[in-house]
Simulated scan of single mutants.
Amino acid sequence: MKLDAVLWDYDGTLVNSVPKNIDITKTILSIVAPHLTGDNLPKYLHSEELYHQANHAARNWQELYVEYYGLSDAEMIQAGSMWAEHQEKNQTQVNLFNGITKIIDRFSDIHHGICSQNSQRNIRNVLEFHGINKPFKAVVGYDDVSNGNQKPQADGGIQCLESIFGHTNSQLLMYIGDHEADTQFARNLESALGGQAKVISVAAAYSRANPSTWTVQPDHIATNVEDLSPIIEKYL
């Protein structure tokens, strides 16, 4: 089978958005949980290194907010509902990981899509700014999927495929992400597609992820962005 499409996570996979995400999280906390600001700011928001520790240890963003930042369940739900709005408002610049543009250009004849928990509009703006928007035939963000069906549930992937192809009959796909939940998402998408469909999972370890500690193991690990090229090439 030949690869039908490459689907991507966004944060920590295509872009290093940590500085922006820290700034946005601080803003949201000041609104929904002011008791977690100032001297009480969660330690995992004090530096990029600490942020990475929490982000890659948490199973999902809900656990990140509750177990690592200290929000209540109600505060977490409110914070999640504000994420897309503040992603679009915040002007902190994000940068593509070095080499990503070259990868996208090399495989521009393949359909690409993004399944993310970032804001769709924010993602599209960044892709356009960096001149890599054309190969991405679909972008599904946090605001496109109901709260209970976010990754690692397969709903975003199904929407992405329907947007790209108009159907979900793909037989071979690849999903690239930097979190264990992304690998689980690939597995869930494969199960949702059923039949003979296969979803190859690739861990973007170049974002400081440590896939060796994951319970759900990916099919491939990209230690550097350059590693993505031979991995994708293998399935063409």
Rank of each mutant, 00 (worst) to 15 (best):
V32F: 13
Y65L: 15
Y44H: 05
R59A: 12
Y51V: 00
E48F: 05
N40S: 13
P34L: 10
N60S: 14
T37H: 15
H52R: 00
E63Y: 07
R59E: 08
Q62H: 14
H52G: 01
G38A: 10
P34R: 09
H35N: 14
E49A: 03
E67G: 06
Y51N: 03
K43Q: 10
L64Y: 03
R59W: 06
G38H: 04
L45G: 02
S47T: 06
A33E: 15
D39K: 12
H35R: 14
Y51G: 01
S47W: 07
A57P: 00
L50H: 00
N40D: 13
N60T: 10
N60K: 09
E48Y: 03
L41V: 10
Y65P: 05
K43N: 05
A57E: 04
T37R: 12
G38V: 09
E67P: 10
H52E: 04
Y68W: 13
V66E: 14
G38Y: 05
Y68P: 06
Q62T: 12
Y68D: 01
A57N: 08
P34M: 09
E67Q: 15
A33Y: 11
N55L: 05
Y65M: 13
A54P: 01
L45F: 06
Q62E: 14
L36H: 12
K43A: 12
H56M: 05
N40Q: 11
L64F: 13
S47C: 04
T37W: 15
W61N: 10
L50C: 01
A58T: 02
A54R: 03
L41A: 10
L64T: 02
V32A: 13
H52F: 03
R59G: 10
R59F: 12
R59L: 11
L50F: 01
E48K: 04
L64S: 04
V32E: 08
H35A: 14
V32S: 08
